[in-house]
Design a binder for these strands. Sequence first.
DNA 1: AGGCAGGCTTTTA
DNA 2: TAAAAGCCTGCC
Length: 271
Amino acid sequence: MIMLVDDDFDLDRIAESGQCFRWELRGEGTYRIPLGERCLYIRALGDGRFDLDCGENDLALWREYFDLKECYSAIRARPDPRSDPFLAECAASERGIRILRQDPWEVTVSFIISQNRNIPAIRRSVELLCRAAGKSCVDGRGEAFYSFPEPEAILALSERELNECRLGYRGRYVRAAAAAAMDGTLDFPSLRTKTPEAARDALTELYGVGIKVASCIQLFGLHQLDAFPVDTWVRRILENEYPDGYPFEEYSPYNGVYQQYMFAFYRHKAL
DNA sequence: AGGCAGGCTTTTA
DNA sequence: TAAAAGCCTGCC
């Protein structure tokens, strides 16, 4: 079916943004996107038109996933080219990035896995974990894929099976997060009721989750758009471009969206 | 108390 | 060989 989108929405830029690790480019600009036990095939046709191949009644679900109720063009237009030329250029150059509404559990595990690794390595480990513990599913085109594993399925893996996902020392962090999800220490519905500060504190209580990974879970998993993950790239950006400080107050409550524009811009510049 | 150095698995360039 | 969307531990 055809979906019309009257806002910033660039599949390639989202796929490269580093917020999701299971999108798969299938040629002809078509992405296969797993979500739970479903899969979407989507392709941009131009002029805000997108070709979607998904379940009959799943369109609303995917519109939610892509956060289509939020107006990113308005967020993007906020930085003033005169007072903040750097951010204005980042936002203009990276137009089309959106913050997906992903499964918070998948986001948590994925970003625990992400520490001290580059994106290809992260994708590999996540896929291995899905194959090891996820449910075997078939998509609408008859192709097999694996769902992202539930905490219980991860806990059921032997140490050796977990090691085969190439997680290294992060394996015990992933296991601890799964245990916390099982015993209720990690509970996303209750995290959503907390203030951002309280959610951050609760997340950093998890073994292997520091401030950076907690911010990523808040931004990409809890959709707290003001969360501002500071990784090696963003740390360099703040040092190089904002030696006198970054105006967080001015860009609240969308600091996380601007972080994404800057992160993508710097990465493109470096490549 | 809070900051800092060193170590950690593995992959990528 | 260094760096990679970092965090933990031990030491001061």
